[in-house]
Each structure stands twice: as structure tokens, then as C-alpha cells.
Design a binder for these strands. Structure first.
Lengths: 197, 197
DNA sequence: CAGATAAACGGAGGCGCCTCCGTTTAAACT
DNA sequence: AGTTTAAACGGAGGCGCCTCCGTTTATCTG
């Protein structure tokens, strides 16, 4: 049984005509870049233009700005979760954990600008929020478990506590040295987590 | 110097040219009606048109939709608070209290449609929220105290408890008999409040 | 491969947002 | 009353949102 179910994002794998799927994917791609660059207020017509489709096509695939934002947001969360697995394969457990935390914090920082729109989205569609945080928690939990089992870090750490610690890192105010600072803080956190030898 | 500070709404009493003040007032009037009728999403150009001013004038007075909504909202809260005093003068304390609660519940119900916009407003401008609830609480408290002092109702009632009771009334779902039902519930509440003789 | 057809496309058009700036006017001064 | 001037007006214009529908095209069928 070589049932190679594509592990693509979400259950949007409903059969679409080839051109439709291409356009849809391209729109998501372009939108993700545009949102990252100019915030969620970016003109949808710009996005359509950059994706070389008519505005009508954009609206057929994503009936409202919120739909599009949601899809992009979901995709990014999923890729963040996926990254946990990949990192775990390529690096030692503690390095994987550290790198993943850096990415997580960086990702959240990206969302600063979106804060308002995302808040609306979250309150009006709470499944999005719960699924999203489930994914993240799962990823962190598994990294934590692996590293704990292998003896790289202490094994008495609660996922929730670590998430809380991270939240205090990503909520530090924006500034030029933001990234360095957050990396230093994560380093500090890691030092605390690593088992003494 | 006869400085007769007018006790009008808010500190918007900054000296304006006569025509400007007229237009501003008319805009607020029209906007209040329009929001009540069609929700806060009403076209601002419609509002300007109904007030017989150019759209430019509207925007000069209220730089964004939120500003306008806020002013209207504030004004309504203030008039609700004022109504408490007036009712207290014209009716017996218990009747005043009952009538005021009816108006309060009715007013909140009006705001159902605005929920989303108001929520945004509240979170981005929390002073609005705190001042607003302060006004309301103050009004209720004074009605309660008067009625308690005069022996019309029990005097062991906390304002917060009554507010809570009211919240359970105004959050009953929309329906044709909404008003009757809320009035019945307020009546019930009043029966509980009134002192036995 | 041709023909049929339903899926998908795309952009014109109508509407609302908001800004900008030339015109009007209240009111201060003489 | 006439002059001045800064405050206020108003609407044209540029842009983005979203819908609607005539046109194009992928895919299916013989």
C-alpha cells in the first residue's frame, strides 16, 4: 500500500483544476511575503498583481482578507511545527531545542504588526487559536522530551513553564538589537536547562 | 470675569467658529441615528450627506471612523448617566431605579451590532472603557443609595452584584420578545430588591 | 483529435475611504 | 460698512475593496 498522502498544508487538497491549484499556491506564497514585508494591511490588489492573477481570482480563492491571512498564518505555524522534527534529526537535541526556540521567538516577533488583525481573527475563529497553540506546544514538548530522554537537559521541565519563559522573551520591546538580545536570553535559558556534568 | 464654563459633553468645548460648532453637532446627531439604525459600518459619506456637509468637513472634525464612534458612544453613556439624576427627581426611588435599569439594558442591547468595532475601540483606548464603566457604575450606585436610604429597597445590595445581575439580563439572546422578557426579568429583580412590609 | 462543458479566469465598475487644496466665510479690526 | 485673515468648508481625485459576468481553458468523452 504505497498510499503517499501528500503531507502538504491543511486539508485544502480537495481536487482542484491544475491551473487553479497553481494560482492558489502562488497567491499564498506572494501573500506570505507581502504580509511579512508590509503587514497584513497590504493591498490585496497588489498581491494579486504580484501573483499575476486577476483580483477576481484572488477573491474566488479567499473570499475575504481574513481568509487569506488565516491560511498564511496556519501555513507558517505548520512549518514551524515541522521544523521541530527536522531540527531534531539534524542536530543534537539541545542544539535543536535552542535553534527552534530562536525561530519561534523570531516568528512571533514578525507578527507584531499583525497583532490587531490577528486578534480579531482569533476571537472570531477560536479553533484557529487552539489548533495553532496545540501545534506549537506539541512541537516544543517533543523537543523537550527528546532532549530530556537523551540526558542533554534536565527532565523536570514543564512545557508550559518553558512557553511562559519564551513569552517573556518575545515580548521585549522592538529595537535594533532585538535579535541579539533575544538570542542571549535564549542562551541563558539553555544554560539553565542543560544538565550539569 | 464671568467665566460660565458650559457643562456640555466632554472637553470639546474648545472655542470653535459658530458654523463649525453647528456642523460638528449636527454630524454627531446624524451619526448617532445612523449607527443606531444601520450599525457602525454605515458609510461616512452617507452621514456627511445627511448632515448636509462635505465629506471633508466630517473628516476634519473626526479624523477617523473610530473617533466619530467614540464621541457618539461617550455622549450616549453620558446621557444615560444624566438620566439617572433626572429619573430620581421625577419618580419615587424604586420606580426611578427600575426605569433606569430598563434603559440601561436597552442601551446595551443596541450595542450588539457594534460589538466588534467597540471591542477594538476599547482595547486600543482603555480609558474610554474605564471612564464609561465608571459613569455607569456611579449612576447605578447613586440610585441604589437613594432608594436604600429612603427605605424603598433593601440596603444591603452591592452595586457590583446588581451590575452582574443586569449583565445576565442583557445577554439573553436576541428575539422578538426580547424587550418584554428583559422587562419581566427586571421586574423580578425589583421584587427581590423591594423591602417587605 | 475534436467537441462539449463546467471550472476557472480577470478586470471593469460601483462604492467607500481619505487627502489635499482652492474657495468661502465668520469674526476681528479700523 | 469695509478690509483683512485665518478658520472652516467641500468635493474632486486617487486608491482599495469586492462583485458580477462575459471570456478562456483544463479536462472529460467519443
Amino acid at each position: 500500500m504505497a498510499s503517499a498522502e501528500p503531507k502538504t498544508t491543511s486539508p485544502a487538497s480537495t481536487k482542484l483544476r491544475a491551473d487553479a491549484r497553481r494560482n492558489r499556491d502562488r497567491l499564498i506564497e506572494v501573500a506570505a511575503a507581502a504580509f511579512a514585508e508590509n503587514g497584513v494591511e497590504t493591498s490585496l490588489e497588489d498581491i494579486a498583481r504580484q501573483a499575476c492573477v486577476g483580483i477576481g481570482t484572488l477573491y474566488r480563492h479567499f473570499p475575504s482578507r481574513e481568509h487569506l491571512v488565516e491560511v498564511v498564518y496556519r501555513r507558517e505555524l505548520e512549518s514551524l511545527a515541522t521544523a521541530a522534527t527536522e531540527l531534531a534529526q539534524k542536530h543534537s537535541p539541545d542544539v535543536a531545542l535552542e535553534e527552534w526556540m530562536r525561530r519561534f521567538v523570531g516568528y512571533i516577533a514578525t507578527k507584531r504588526g499583525m497583532a490587531n488583525s490577528l486578534r480579531i481573527l482569533m476571537t472570531s475563529n477560536s479553533s484557529l487559536f487552539s489548533e495553532g497553540s496545540g501545534l506549537i506546544r506539541g512541537a516544543l514538548e517533543s523537543l523537550l522530551k527528546t532532549a530530556g530522554d537523551k540526558g542533554c537537559i534536565r527532565s523536570d521541565i514543564e512545557t508550559s513553564d518553558l512557553l511562559h519563559a519564551l513569552s517573556s522573551i518575545y515580548s521585549i520591546p522592538e529595537s535594533p538589537e532585538w535579535r541579539e538580545r533575544s538570542h542571549r536570553l535564549i542562551g541563558l535559558l539553555m544554560d539553565g536547562l542543560r544538565t550539569r556534568r
